[in-house]
């Protein structure tokens, strides 16, 4: 998975072609960390369907807020630079997988 920062977000997500999945997380968010291993597995098993990225919101708070993300965990899908779907708070890895398959 590609680690996003305020420096590369525009290039990797907003200017990217095709489907991009962004996992917004932070060190203090236990549900995010609980989800993380299965998100990484999902990315590995679905390589090619989308570009998989993660953004640690600590230190990138303004960037997250600019993406209208003000709560964790959040997983957002972008297509050709535009946010087309988002899962926030109560969701399971199975929901992420279903959303990915729907959009890919």
């Amino acid at each position: 998975m590609i680690e996003l920062t305020k420096e590369n977000f525009e290039q990797e997500v907003l200017k990217a072609e095709g489907l991009v999945m962004v996992d917004f997380w932070s060190e203090k968010c236990e549900p995010c960390k609980a989800l993380m291993p299965s998100v990484h597995d999902l990315a590995e098993n679905n390589a090619g369907k989308a570009k998989f990225c993660s953004l640690n919101t600590a230190g990138n708070k303004r960037l997250a807020i600019s993406q209208k993300v003000l709560g964790l965990p959040t997983i957002a899908f972008y297509k050709n630079g535009e946010k087309i779907a988002e899962l926030t708070k109560d969701f399971a890895i199975e929901d992420v997988e279903a959303k990915l398959n729907e959009l890919a």
């Binding site: 932070s26 203090k28 968010c29 919101t57 708070k61 003000l70 709560g71 964790l72 959040t74 926030t88």
Partner: peptide, 18 residues
């Protein structure tokens, strides 16, 4: 507004509200 400012988890989201 869940995840857009509405939260039930302080440790998850406190950072955003510095």
């Amino acid at each position: 507004f869940r995840g857009k400012g509405v939260s039930y988890c302080a440790t998850c989201d406190a950072d955003f509200f510095e």
